[in-house]
Design a binder for these strands. Structure first.
Length: 204
DNA sequence: CAAGAGATCATCT
DNA sequence: GATGATCTCTTGA
C-alpha cells in the first residue's frame, strides 16, 4: 500500500524512523514529470529504505530552513509529502520528503537504499546500482530537480513509497548526521537513522 | 588503510 | 565572491 500524505504529517524524527523498511518504488524508462501511461521501456524498480536523516524545523542549524525561507527551500515550508530535491557540491542531488504541518519547515533525507530482487528483473549490482549514499542513489536512479515540489504520495510521477515491515526500535541505529560540522549544538543530535547491520547503509 | 584534494555550480551574501 | 545534508581518486605509510 502506498503511504498516504498523513503519514508525513508527523514529527520528523518519527517519520524518519518509520520510513526505514519501507519501499521506494521508481518507474524508470518511463516519464518522470508527466501523467502516468503505458510505455515500452518502463521498468518498475523497488528498493528498501535503509538509512535516513531528519532535518527538524527552523532552529535546526543543519537545515536549510534555519536561514529562512528562500526560493530554493520554500517547499520545506509547505505541505507534508512533497518531494524536496536540491543540488549540493555542484553535482549531487539530495532527495528529501517534507514532513510536519504546513508552514513548519522540516524534511527527511533519504540516504541509502537496498536493491531488491524483482520477478521481472535480475538483481542489479555493481557500481551502476550502488545506492548506498544520498548522492549515489539520486545519480543512479536519475532523480534530479525535476522531481522537486512533486507529491510522493501519488503514483503519477513515477516515484512513490510503499508501506514496509515495521522496524523495531531496537533494530534502529541512531547516530549524528553526516557533513554538518558547522551546525553548532545541532551537529551532535542523533538524527541519522539506519537499520542495524544492514550492508547497504552508507559509509562512516 | 587513512587522509586530503578536487570536481563543479545553484544559491546565497 | 563563498560555500555546501557528497563522492571519487590520489598519495603515502
Amino acid at each position: 500500500m502506498i503511504l498516504p500524505k498523513s503519514f508525513y504529517e508527523n514529527n520528523t524524527l518519527k517519520v524518519a524512523q518509520d520510513l526505514l523498511g519501507c519501499f521506494l518504488v521508481f518507474l524508470s524508462g518511463g516519464k518522470s514529470s508527466s501523467a502516468n501511461g503505458a510505455h515500452a521501456n518502463e521498468c518498475l524498480n523497488k528498493y528498501r529504505i535503509v538509512e535516513t536523516e531528519a532535518y527538524c524545523g527552523p532552529h535546526d542549524l543543519a537545515s536549510h530552513a534555519s536561514r529562512g525561507e528562500t526560493e530554493r527551500n520554500k517547499v520545506m515550508f509547505g505541505e507534508a509529502g512533497i518531494i524536496y530535491v536540491y543540488l549540493i557540491y555542484g553535482m549531487y542531488n539530495m532527495l528529501n520528503i517534507v514532513t510536519e504541518k504546513n508552514r513548519y519547515p522540516a524534511a527527511v533525507l533519504i540516504r541509502a537504499l537496498e536493491p531488491l530482487p524483482h520477478p521481472n528483473l535480475p538483481l542489479r549490482k555493481g557500481k551502476e546500482f550502488d545506492l548506498s549514499g544520498p548522492g549515489k542513489l539520486t545519480k543512479n536512479l536519475k532523480i534530479d530537480r525535476n522531481f522537486n515540489s512533486l507529491e510522493i504520495y501519488k503514483k503519477n510521477y513515477g516515484l512513490w513509497i510503499e508501506e514496509g515491515e515495521k522496524i523495531k526500535s531496537s533494530q534502529i541505529k541512531k547516530v549524528p548526521r553526516v557533513g554538518v560540522d558547522y551546525a553548532g549544538e545541532y551537529k551532535d543530535k542523533l538524527w541519522r537513522f539506519y537499520i542495524k547491520d544492514n550492508k547497504f547503509v552508507s559509509k562512516r
